[in-house]
Amino acid sequence: MVTRYPTVDELARMDTQAVFDHIAQHLLAQGARSTHRLTGDCLYRSAKGRACAVGSIIPDAVYSAAFEHNRITRLFWLLGRPEFRTAHHEFFCDFLLANSTLLTQLMVIHDCGSPGLWSLALRDCADMFGLSAAVIDRYEGIVEPEARDGQGVFEPSAGIVEHEASDVLA
């Protein structure tokens, strides 16, 4: 379950650290991917009340079911359509663009990494972006510690190289 979707005003006040903290806290509290129950495709918001990394920061005033099954890069196109030409949608489009590198990295963690490895991958992501990983400390031990033996550790920096933004599904 998503901790809480931020409002547009709250999202506007978030700096990079706050965006990371919100998404990391959400992913670790949820402890599972947000996926379609039949296809297994990652979803911004699922019928089970889950949200992916990017889905967790889409305000209710911005979210549309039309976003589902579209890569983050396709959201820019969708947000340019007449039905999404509101101040809130324009702001969110600018927000996605300004935070695209971090958001893409967090999407790779959600979409490609095992939930049991998320805390390690999120720590690596925080290090890569020069962010504090303090939010993760509150969730240590909640997620399965399957990576403690050092095998299969997901390398988030490798995810960006291996998965171009157009290959990453939300």
Rank of each mutant, 00 (worst) to 15 (best):
Glu68Ser: 07
Leu96Asn: 11
Leu106Phe: 06
Phe76Val: 07
Leu106Val: 10
His88Pro: 09
His69Cys: 01
Leu75Val: 01
Glu164Gln: 13
Asp111Gly: 07
Glu140Ile: 14
Ile142Met: 14
Thr39Leu: 03
Val135Gly: 05
Lys48Val: 02
Arg45Thr: 04
Pro156Tyr: 03
Leu27Arg: 09
Ala51Asn: 06
Glu155Thr: 11
Met128Pro: 00
Ala12Thr: 07
Gly159Glu: 07
Phe76Arg: 09
Asp149Cys: 05
Thr73Asn: 10
Ala61His: 08
Ser46Glu: 00
Ser34Ile: 03
Cys125Phe: 04
Pro145Ile: 00
Asp94Leu: 09
Val135Ala: 10
Tyr63Asp: 03
Asp149Val: 00
Arg138Cys: 04
Leu79Asp: 02
Pro59Gln: 04
Thr101Asp: 15
Ala51Glu: 01
Ser132Arg: 10
Thr39His: 02
His69Tyr: 15
Ala29Met: 14
Glu155Met: 08
Cys112Phe: 10
Ala18Asn: 06
His69Met: 10
Gly80Leu: 07
His22Gln: 09
Ala66His: 12
Thr7Lys: 01
Thr7Gly: 11
Gly31His: 07
His110Asn: 14
Pro115His: 03
Phe67Met: 13
Ala12Leu: 02
His110Thr: 02
Gly141Asp: 09
Gly130Lys: 01
Tyr63Ser: 04
Arg4Tyr: 14
Val161Pro: 01
Thr3Ser: 11
Ile72Asn: 03
Glu146Ile: 12
Ile136Ala: 03
Ala134Val: 10
Val54Gln: 06
Phe84His: 15
Glu164Phe: 12
Phe91Ile: 06
Glu164Trp: 12
Pro145Arg: 07
Leu122His: 05
Gly113Pro: 05
Asp60Phe: 12
Ala53Gln: 00
Ala66Ile: 07
Tyr63Gln: 02
Arg33Ala: 11
His36Ala: 13
Thr104Asn: 15
Pro115Met: 02
Ala51Val: 03
Ala165Leu: 13
Pro82Ala: 06
Ile109Gln: 01
Ile142Leu: 14
Ser132Asn: 08
Val143His: 11
Thr73Phe: 12
Arg45Ile: 00
Ala65Ser: 13
Phe129Gln: 01
His163Pro: 00
Phe92Cys: 10
Thr73Ile: 12
Ala32Ser: 14
Gly49Tyr: 03
Ala24Ile: 02
Ser119Tyr: 14
Ala126Cys: 01
Ala12Val: 03
Ala24His: 03
Pro82Gln: 05
Arg45Asn: 04
Gly141Trp: 07
Asp124Leu: 02
Arg148Ala: 08
Ala158Lys: 12
Arg74Glu: 15
Val54Lys: 00
Glu68Gly: 09
Gly31Val: 06
Tyr5Trp: 14
Pro6Glu: 05
His36Trp: 07
Met128Ala: 13
Arg138Ser: 10
His89Ile: 04
Ile72Ala: 13
